[in-house]
Nucleic acid binder design. Structure first.
Lengths: 206, 206
DNA sequence: GTCTATACTACGATAGAC
DNA sequence: GTCTATCGTAGTATAGAC
Protein backbone atom coordinates (compact mmCIF):
# COMPACT_ATOMS: atom_id res chain seq x y z
CA UNK A 1 0.00 0.00 0.00
CA UNK A 2 1.37 3.33 -1.08
CA UNK A 3 -0.12 5.12 1.95
CA UNK A 4 1.89 3.01 4.42
CA UNK A 5 5.00 3.46 2.35
CA UNK A 6 4.58 7.23 2.46
CA UNK A 7 3.90 7.20 6.20
CA UNK A 8 6.98 5.13 6.99
CA UNK A 9 9.17 7.44 4.98
CA UNK A 10 7.51 10.53 6.37
CA UNK A 11 8.01 9.50 10.01
CA UNK A 12 11.70 9.19 9.30
CA UNK A 13 11.98 12.50 7.47
CA UNK A 14 9.75 14.49 9.83
CA UNK A 15 11.61 13.07 12.81
CA UNK A 16 15.00 13.83 11.35
CA UNK A 17 14.31 17.25 9.83
CA UNK A 18 11.17 18.54 11.51
CA UNK A 19 7.93 19.53 9.85
CA UNK A 20 9.41 22.43 7.90
CA UNK A 21 12.73 20.78 7.18
CA UNK A 22 11.18 17.71 5.61
CA UNK A 23 10.07 18.15 2.01
CA UNK A 24 7.15 16.44 0.38
CA UNK A 25 9.27 16.15 -2.76
CA UNK A 26 11.88 14.06 -0.95
CA UNK A 27 9.31 11.98 0.91
CA UNK A 28 7.57 11.17 -2.35
CA UNK A 29 10.82 10.39 -4.14
CA UNK A 30 12.04 8.10 -1.33
CA UNK A 31 8.67 6.35 -1.47
CA UNK A 32 9.07 6.04 -5.22
CA UNK A 33 5.91 7.90 -6.08
CA UNK A 34 4.86 11.34 -7.24
CA UNK A 35 4.55 14.27 -4.87
CA UNK A 36 0.92 14.71 -5.74
CA UNK A 37 0.16 11.30 -4.20
CA UNK A 38 0.54 13.00 -0.84
CA UNK A 39 -2.15 15.51 -1.75
CA UNK A 40 -4.35 12.72 -3.01
CA UNK A 41 -4.04 10.38 -0.01
CA UNK A 42 -3.62 12.83 2.86
CA UNK A 43 -4.81 16.15 1.58
CA UNK A 44 -1.38 17.72 1.95
CA UNK A 45 1.73 17.90 4.08
CA UNK A 46 -0.19 18.58 7.30
CA UNK A 47 -2.50 15.62 6.74
CA UNK A 48 0.46 13.34 6.18
CA UNK A 49 2.01 14.61 9.41
CA UNK A 50 -1.09 13.78 11.46
CA UNK A 51 -1.34 10.38 9.80
CA UNK A 52 2.22 9.75 11.02
CA UNK A 53 1.19 10.54 14.60
CA UNK A 54 -1.76 8.12 14.39
CA UNK A 55 0.48 5.45 12.94
CA UNK A 56 3.02 5.83 15.77
CA UNK A 57 0.28 5.78 18.42
CA UNK A 58 -1.04 2.51 17.00
CA UNK A 59 2.44 0.94 17.02
CA UNK A 60 3.01 2.07 20.59
CA UNK A 61 -0.35 0.77 21.73
CA UNK A 62 0.34 -2.58 20.15
CA UNK A 63 3.79 -2.83 21.66
CA UNK A 64 2.66 -2.02 25.18
CA UNK A 65 -0.51 -4.08 25.17
CA UNK A 66 1.13 -6.77 27.39
CA UNK A 67 2.15 -4.09 29.89
CA UNK A 68 -1.38 -2.78 29.98
CA UNK A 69 -2.65 -6.27 30.72
CA UNK A 70 -0.51 -6.27 33.86
CA UNK A 71 -2.20 -3.19 35.26
CA UNK A 72 -5.83 -4.34 34.91
CA UNK A 73 -6.12 -5.85 38.40
CA UNK A 74 -3.77 -3.44 40.15
CA UNK A 75 -6.21 -2.76 42.98
CA UNK A 76 -6.04 -6.32 44.24
CA UNK A 77 -2.28 -6.79 44.18
CA UNK A 78 0.00 -7.00 47.18
CA UNK A 79 2.93 -4.60 47.33
CA UNK A 80 5.60 -7.00 46.13
CA UNK A 81 3.65 -8.04 43.06
CA UNK A 82 2.90 -4.42 42.23
CA UNK A 83 6.61 -3.58 42.47
CA UNK A 84 7.55 -6.54 40.30
CA UNK A 85 5.06 -5.48 37.62
CA UNK A 86 6.31 -1.92 37.69
CA UNK A 87 9.82 -3.20 37.13
CA UNK A 88 8.63 -5.28 34.20
CA UNK A 89 6.84 -2.35 32.57
CA UNK A 90 9.78 -0.01 33.08
CA UNK A 91 12.06 -2.61 31.58
CA UNK A 92 9.73 -2.94 28.62
CA UNK A 93 9.92 0.80 28.15
CA UNK A 94 13.71 0.70 28.35
CA UNK A 95 13.79 -2.05 25.75
CA UNK A 96 11.58 0.04 23.49
CA UNK A 97 13.92 3.00 23.83
CA UNK A 98 16.93 0.80 23.12
CA UNK A 99 15.33 -0.96 20.16
CA UNK A 100 16.67 0.26 16.80
CA UNK A 101 13.16 0.45 15.34
CA UNK A 102 12.24 3.17 17.82
CA UNK A 103 14.86 5.50 16.39
CA UNK A 104 12.64 6.88 13.68
CA UNK A 105 9.43 7.50 15.58
CA UNK A 106 11.13 8.44 18.84
CA UNK A 107 12.57 11.48 17.10
CA UNK A 108 9.09 12.34 15.92
CA UNK A 109 7.70 12.14 19.46
CA UNK A 110 10.53 14.06 21.10
CA UNK A 111 10.02 16.83 18.58
CA UNK A 112 6.35 17.03 19.41
CA UNK A 113 7.12 17.21 23.12
CA UNK A 114 9.14 20.36 22.59
CA UNK A 115 6.48 22.17 20.61
CA UNK A 116 3.24 20.21 20.88
CA UNK A 117 0.78 20.44 18.01
CA UNK A 118 -2.39 18.51 17.33
CA UNK A 119 -0.17 15.51 16.61
CA UNK A 120 0.87 15.36 20.26
CA UNK A 121 -2.74 15.09 21.39
CA UNK A 122 -3.14 12.10 19.12
CA UNK A 123 0.02 10.50 20.48
CA UNK A 124 -0.97 11.13 24.08
CA UNK A 125 -4.58 10.09 23.88
CA UNK A 126 -3.83 7.29 21.45
CA UNK A 127 -1.15 5.58 23.51
CA UNK A 128 0.68 7.38 26.31
CA UNK A 129 -2.32 8.09 28.51
CA UNK A 130 -3.16 4.42 28.99
CA UNK A 131 0.38 3.51 30.03
CA UNK A 132 0.53 6.42 32.45
CA UNK A 133 -2.78 5.55 34.05
CA UNK A 134 -1.84 1.90 34.34
CA UNK A 135 1.49 2.55 36.00
CA UNK A 136 -0.09 5.08 38.32
CA UNK A 137 -2.46 2.42 39.65
CA UNK A 138 0.47 0.06 40.23
CA UNK A 139 2.42 2.79 42.01
CA UNK A 140 -0.54 3.32 44.29
CA UNK A 141 0.00 -0.20 45.63
CA UNK A 142 3.81 -0.08 45.50
CA UNK A 143 4.15 3.24 47.32
CA UNK A 144 1.04 3.73 49.48
CA UNK A 145 2.88 6.51 51.35
CA UNK A 146 2.73 8.84 48.35
CA UNK A 147 -0.39 11.02 47.93
CA UNK A 148 -2.45 9.88 44.97
CA UNK A 149 -2.21 13.16 43.14
CA UNK A 150 1.59 12.90 43.14
CA UNK A 151 1.75 9.48 41.51
CA UNK A 152 1.75 10.91 38.00
CA UNK A 153 4.88 12.88 38.83
CA UNK A 154 6.54 9.77 40.27
CA UNK A 155 5.67 7.76 37.18
CA UNK A 156 7.26 10.35 34.89
CA UNK A 157 10.43 10.58 36.99
CA UNK A 158 10.83 6.82 36.91
CA UNK A 159 10.12 6.76 33.17
CA UNK A 160 12.75 9.47 32.82
CA UNK A 161 15.50 6.94 33.34
CA UNK A 162 14.32 5.03 30.28
CA UNK A 163 13.23 7.99 28.17
CA UNK A 164 16.66 9.61 28.51
CA UNK A 165 18.03 6.72 26.45
CA UNK A 166 16.30 8.24 23.43
CA UNK A 167 15.83 11.87 24.40
CA UNK A 168 19.51 12.36 25.23
CA UNK A 169 20.92 9.47 23.24
CA UNK A 170 23.95 11.39 22.03
CA UNK A 171 25.02 12.24 25.58
CA UNK A 172 24.32 8.73 26.85
CA UNK A 173 26.66 7.38 24.19
CA UNK A 174 29.36 9.86 25.22
CA UNK A 175 28.88 8.97 28.89
CA UNK A 176 29.33 5.28 28.11
CA UNK A 177 32.25 5.93 25.79
CA UNK A 178 30.33 4.15 23.04
CA UNK A 179 29.44 5.19 19.52
CA UNK A 180 26.08 3.44 19.75
CA UNK A 181 24.01 1.45 22.21
CA UNK A 182 23.98 -2.20 21.28
CA UNK A 183 23.42 -5.44 23.17
CA UNK A 184 26.14 -5.00 25.80
CA UNK A 185 25.39 -1.39 26.69
CA UNK A 186 21.66 -2.10 26.61
CA UNK A 187 21.96 -4.93 29.11
CA UNK A 188 24.06 -2.78 31.42
CA UNK A 189 21.61 0.11 31.29
CA UNK A 190 18.57 -2.10 31.83
CA UNK A 191 20.23 -3.73 34.83
CA UNK A 192 20.85 -0.36 36.47
CA UNK A 193 17.40 0.96 35.60
CA UNK A 194 15.93 -2.08 37.29
CA UNK A 195 17.96 -1.77 40.47
CA UNK A 196 17.45 2.00 40.63
CA UNK A 197 13.71 1.63 40.20
CA UNK A 198 13.63 -1.14 42.79
CA UNK A 199 15.43 1.16 45.24
CA UNK A 200 12.88 3.90 44.56
CA UNK A 201 9.84 1.63 44.87
CA UNK A 202 11.14 -0.07 48.02
CA UNK A 203 11.24 3.34 49.67
CA UNK A 204 9.69 4.27 52.96
CA UNK A 205 6.07 3.39 53.53
CA UNK A 206 5.97 5.32 56.77
CA UNK B 1 25.68 44.27 20.53
CA UNK B 2 23.92 43.15 17.40
CA UNK B 3 25.65 39.76 17.43
CA UNK B 4 24.21 38.84 20.83
CA UNK B 5 20.81 40.05 19.77
CA UNK B 6 20.91 37.81 16.72
CA UNK B 7 22.11 34.83 18.75
CA UNK B 8 19.37 35.18 21.36
CA UNK B 9 16.71 35.33 18.67
CA UNK B 10 18.29 32.51 16.71
CA UNK B 11 18.42 30.12 19.69
CA UNK B 12 14.70 30.64 20.12
CA UNK B 13 13.87 30.19 16.45
CA UNK B 14 16.22 27.26 15.83
CA UNK B 15 14.95 25.55 18.98
CA UNK B 16 11.34 26.05 18.06
CA UNK B 17 11.47 25.35 14.32
CA UNK B 18 14.69 23.44 13.73
CA UNK B 19 17.56 24.43 11.49
CA UNK B 20 15.57 24.25 8.28
CA UNK B 21 12.34 25.57 9.72
CA UNK B 22 13.93 28.74 11.04
CA UNK B 23 14.49 31.46 8.47
CA UNK B 24 17.29 34.00 8.47
CA UNK B 25 14.78 36.56 7.23
CA UNK B 26 12.65 36.13 10.35
CA UNK B 27 15.61 35.98 12.70
CA UNK B 28 16.96 39.23 11.25
CA UNK B 29 13.58 40.92 11.37
CA UNK B 30 12.95 39.88 14.99
CA UNK B 31 16.43 41.21 15.83
CA UNK B 32 15.55 44.42 14.03
CA UNK B 33 18.40 44.27 11.55
CA UNK B 34 18.97 43.29 7.94
CA UNK B 35 19.32 39.70 6.90
CA UNK B 36 22.76 40.32 5.47
CA UNK B 37 24.03 41.12 8.97
CA UNK B 38 23.97 37.39 9.58
CA UNK B 39 26.26 36.82 6.63
CA UNK B 40 28.53 39.59 7.82
CA UNK B 41 28.82 38.49 11.46
CA UNK B 42 28.57 34.73 11.18
CA UNK B 43 29.27 33.91 7.57
CA UNK B 44 25.78 32.51 7.02
CA UNK B 45 23.00 30.47 8.59
CA UNK B 46 25.29 27.60 9.54
CA UNK B 47 27.75 29.93 11.26
CA UNK B 48 24.94 31.50 13.26
CA UNK B 49 23.78 28.04 14.29
CA UNK B 50 27.21 27.09 15.63
CA UNK B 51 27.51 30.43 17.41
CA UNK B 52 24.24 29.57 19.16
CA UNK B 53 25.74 26.29 20.38
CA UNK B 54 28.81 28.08 21.75
CA UNK B 55 26.61 30.64 23.45
CA UNK B 56 24.51 27.95 25.12
CA UNK B 57 27.61 26.04 26.24
CA UNK B 58 28.96 29.19 27.88
CA UNK B 59 25.67 29.83 29.68
CA UNK B 60 25.54 26.25 30.89
CA UNK B 61 29.14 26.34 32.08
CA UNK B 62 28.49 29.52 33.99
CA UNK B 63 25.34 28.19 35.58
CA UNK B 64 26.90 24.95 36.74
CA UNK B 65 30.20 26.41 37.92
CA UNK B 66 29.13 26.07 41.59
CA UNK B 67 28.29 22.40 41.00
CA UNK B 68 31.69 21.85 39.45
CA UNK B 69 33.34 23.39 42.48
CA UNK B 70 31.71 20.70 44.60
CA UNK B 71 33.35 17.89 42.65
CA UNK B 72 36.94 19.11 42.82
CA UNK B 73 37.88 17.21 45.97
CA UNK B 74 35.65 14.21 45.38
CA UNK B 75 38.44 11.71 46.05
CA UNK B 76 38.74 12.77 49.68
CA UNK B 77 35.06 12.79 50.60
CA UNK B 78 33.28 10.32 52.83
CA UNK B 79 30.24 8.58 51.44
CA UNK B 80 27.62 10.74 53.11
CA UNK B 81 29.15 13.98 51.90
CA UNK B 82 29.48 12.60 48.38
CA UNK B 83 25.80 11.63 48.41
CA UNK B 84 24.77 15.03 49.72
CA UNK B 85 26.71 16.77 46.96
CA UNK B 86 25.22 14.53 44.31
CA UNK B 87 21.78 15.46 45.56
CA UNK B 88 22.68 19.14 45.40
CA UNK B 89 23.95 18.87 41.83
CA UNK B 90 20.95 16.87 40.68
CA UNK B 91 18.66 19.43 42.28
CA UNK B 92 20.53 22.20 40.51
CA UNK B 93 19.98 20.37 37.23
CA UNK B 94 16.29 19.96 38.02
CA UNK B 95 16.03 23.67 38.78
CA UNK B 96 17.69 24.45 35.47
CA UNK B 97 15.20 22.25 33.62
CA UNK B 98 12.31 23.88 35.46
CA UNK B 99 13.55 27.43 34.97
CA UNK B 100 11.64 29.32 32.28
CA UNK B 101 14.87 30.68 30.77
CA UNK B 102 15.94 27.16 29.86
CA UNK B 103 12.95 26.76 27.56
CA UNK B 104 14.62 28.31 24.56
CA UNK B 105 18.02 26.67 24.66
CA UNK B 106 16.78 23.36 26.03
CA UNK B 107 14.83 22.88 22.82
CA UNK B 108 17.99 23.59 20.90
CA UNK B 109 19.92 20.94 22.85
CA UNK B 110 17.23 18.28 22.69
CA UNK B 111 17.10 18.77 18.94
CA UNK B 112 20.83 18.25 18.65
CA UNK B 113 20.64 15.08 20.72
CA UNK B 114 18.31 13.50 18.20
CA UNK B 115 20.48 14.25 15.19
CA UNK B 116 23.87 15.42 16.43
CA UNK B 117 25.84 17.80 14.23
CA UNK B 118 29.02 19.72 14.92
CA UNK B 119 26.97 21.87 17.28
CA UNK B 120 26.52 18.93 19.63
CA UNK B 121 30.27 18.46 19.92
CA UNK B 122 30.56 22.06 21.01
CA UNK B 123 27.79 21.65 23.56
CA UNK B 124 29.26 18.46 24.93
CA UNK B 125 32.88 19.50 25.09
CA UNK B 126 31.99 23.04 26.10
CA UNK B 127 29.82 22.16 29.07
CA UNK B 128 28.29 18.70 29.48
CA UNK B 129 31.52 16.75 29.69
CA UNK B 130 32.73 18.58 32.80
CA UNK B 131 29.46 18.00 34.67
CA UNK B 132 29.44 14.35 33.71
CA UNK B 133 33.03 13.81 34.81
CA UNK B 134 32.43 15.64 38.08
CA UNK B 135 29.36 13.66 39.00
CA UNK B 136 31.06 10.44 38.03
CA UNK B 137 33.81 11.09 40.57
CA UNK B 138 31.20 11.78 43.26
CA UNK B 139 29.33 8.59 42.37
CA UNK B 140 32.55 6.68 42.78
CA UNK B 141 32.49 7.61 46.47
CA UNK B 142 28.73 7.36 46.89
CA UNK B 143 28.40 3.92 45.29
CA UNK B 144 31.76 2.13 45.63
CA UNK B 145 30.01 -1.14 44.74
CA UNK B 146 29.52 -0.07 41.13
CA UNK B 147 32.34 -0.78 38.66
CA UNK B 148 34.01 2.45 37.57
CA UNK B 149 33.24 1.99 33.91
CA UNK B 150 29.52 1.84 34.72
CA UNK B 151 29.38 5.14 36.58
CA UNK B 152 28.74 7.15 33.42
CA UNK B 153 25.62 5.09 32.79
CA UNK B 154 24.47 5.60 36.37
CA UNK B 155 25.00 9.34 36.11
CA UNK B 156 22.88 9.56 32.96
CA UNK B 157 20.06 7.48 34.45
CA UNK B 158 19.95 9.72 37.51
CA UNK B 159 20.08 12.82 35.32
CA UNK B 160 17.23 11.32 33.32
CA UNK B 161 14.78 12.16 36.09
CA UNK B 162 15.63 15.83 35.69
CA UNK B 163 16.14 15.88 31.94
CA UNK B 164 12.70 14.41 31.36
CA UNK B 165 11.25 17.64 32.73
CA UNK B 166 12.38 19.31 29.51
CA UNK B 167 12.70 16.45 27.05
CA UNK B 168 9.16 15.20 27.69
CA UNK B 169 7.69 18.41 29.11
CA UNK B 170 4.37 18.02 27.34
CA UNK B 171 3.80 14.57 28.82
CA UNK B 172 4.96 15.65 32.29
CA UNK B 173 2.35 18.40 32.21
CA UNK B 174 -0.35 15.91 31.22
CA UNK B 175 0.76 13.50 33.96
CA UNK B 176 0.49 16.27 36.55
CA UNK B 177 -2.79 17.52 35.16
CA UNK B 178 -1.19 20.93 34.72
CA UNK B 179 -0.91 23.24 31.74
CA UNK B 180 2.57 24.33 32.78
CA UNK B 181 5.13 23.67 35.47
CA UNK B 182 5.31 26.57 37.89
CA UNK B 183 6.39 26.98 41.50
CA UNK B 184 4.08 24.39 43.07
CA UNK B 185 4.69 21.62 40.53
CA UNK B 186 8.41 22.38 40.50
CA UNK B 187 8.71 21.99 44.27
CA UNK B 188 6.83 18.70 44.16
CA UNK B 189 9.00 17.32 41.38
CA UNK B 190 12.25 18.40 43.01
CA UNK B 191 11.21 16.80 46.29
CA UNK B 192 10.57 13.47 44.59
CA UNK B 193 13.72 13.68 42.51
CA UNK B 194 15.68 14.20 45.69
CA UNK B 195 14.14 11.29 47.56
CA UNK B 196 14.37 8.99 44.54
CA UNK B 197 18.02 9.87 44.02
CA UNK B 198 18.72 9.38 47.69
CA UNK B 199 17.15 5.93 47.51
CA UNK B 200 19.34 5.08 44.53
CA UNK B 201 22.55 6.39 46.06
CA UNK B 202 21.90 4.74 49.43
CA UNK B 203 21.79 1.41 47.63
CA UNK B 204 23.76 -1.68 48.49
CA UNK B 205 27.51 -1.34 48.96
CA UNK B 206 27.95 -5.10 49.16
C1' DG C 1 29.00 47.85 9.85
C1' DT C 2 24.58 48.05 8.13
C1' DC C 3 21.44 48.64 4.61
C1' DT C 4 18.69 47.63 -0.21
C1' DA C 5 18.22 45.06 -4.27
C1' DT C 6 18.60 41.01 -6.62
C1' DA C 7 20.02 36.24 -8.24
C1' DC C 8 19.07 31.66 -7.69
C1' DT C 9 17.12 27.64 -5.67
C1' DA C 10 13.58 24.80 -3.49
C1' DC C 11 9.24 24.60 -1.41
C1' DG C 12 3.88 23.10 -1.37
C1' DA C 13 -0.15 23.09 -4.01
C1' DT C 14 -2.77 22.25 -7.98
C1' DA C 15 -4.46 21.45 -12.73
C1' DG C 16 -4.96 18.21 -16.18
C1' DA C 17 -3.34 14.00 -19.03
C1' DC C 18 -3.71 9.09 -18.76
C1' DG D 1 -4.92 6.29 -8.50
C1' DT D 2 -0.72 8.04 -10.35
C1' DC D 3 1.81 10.83 -13.28
C1' DT D 4 3.98 15.54 -15.45
C1' DA D 5 4.01 20.42 -15.71
C1' DT D 6 3.58 24.72 -13.76
C1' DC D 7 2.40 28.58 -10.53
C1' DG D 8 3.29 31.48 -6.66
C1' DT D 9 5.90 31.88 -2.48
C1' DA D 10 9.83 31.82 0.52
C1' DG D 11 14.42 30.40 1.35
C1' DT D 12 19.91 31.73 1.45
C1' DA D 13 23.52 34.13 -0.44
C1' DT D 14 25.71 37.99 -2.52
C1' DA D 15 26.82 42.42 -4.72
C1' DG D 16 27.13 47.11 -4.05
C1' DA D 17 25.45 51.74 -2.04
C1' DC D 18 26.18 54.47 2.06
Amino acid sequence: MMQDRLIETAIDQFGRLGFDGASTRDIARASETAMSSITYHFGGKQGLYLACADHIAAKLRERHAPSMEMTKDAQELDRETAIERCLAIVDMLAQTMLHPDSEHWARFIVREQQAPTEAFERLYEGAMQAVLTGVRSLLERARPDIPRDELGAMAMLIFGQSLVLRAARATVCKALGATQLDEAEGALLRRHIRSNTLAILSGETQ
